[in-house]
């Protein structure tokens, strides 16, 4: 008896507490930058596509909703010929972002992706690629990698010695 009354009292007390919920969509909660919402592809600080089509996001994806194909441009950079995310299957787990070695794929604080037609949930590269660096501003994979691209020869990446002259007799 006493416990039931106490329960009623506790419930009644909440009538006067400030509500945690907001009147969405008129009001919106502020979401943190690390919130796991709609996925984007970003560019490096020099404005080039960050994605090198390594396929790690695709292989780590639990619902297998990422498909892409590697291509190589005239500068020698790898890039995805197409990059497709089927958001109707995506579970926003963020594994792709964790797996990405170039900070290309990032999750954003946007979750408002309702569609009347499920087909519209399939995002291609033009829907994914943004013009900025996203959350990580400084990283440029090719400055670290050993691969040569136009404008960066062997020995010009960070922490690299100039190329060895194999025909010299000096030790």
């Amino acid at each position: 008896m006493l416990s039931q009354i106490r329960s009623l009292w506790e419930v009644l007390k909440h009538t006067f507490v400030k509500a945690d919920t907001v009147e969405y969509p008129e009001q919106r909660r502020e979401l943190y930058p690390r919130y796991r919402g709609r996925i984007i592809l970003t560019r490096d600080p020099d404005g080039e596509e960050r994605c090198v089509a390594c396929n790690l996001c695709a292989v780590v994806c639990p619902p297998d909703c990422i498909a892409l194909q590697k291509a190589e441009d005239e500068d020698g950079r790898w890039y995805p010929e197409f990059f497709r995310i089927n958001f109707s299957r995506c579970i926003m787990c963020g594994f792709c972002e964790e797996a990405c070695p170039t900070h290309a794929i990032q999750l954003t604080p946007d979750f408002e992706m309702g569609e009347y037609d499920r087909q519209n949930m399939v995002y291609e590269k033009q829907n994914l690629l943004i013009d900025g660096t996203g959350k990580y501003h400084d990283y440029n994979f090719y400055r670290v990698a050993g691969m040569t691209i136009n404008g960066k020869n062997k020995g010009q990446a960070e922490n690299e010695k100039p190329p060895v002259d194999v025909k010299t007799l000096l030790p």
Partner: peptide, 11 residues
């Protein structure tokens, strides 16, 4: 670990 099954033909 074949990837992309739900996106291969999604286009």
């Amino acid at each position: 670990r074949y990837s992309g099954r739900t996106a291969l033909h999604a286009n």
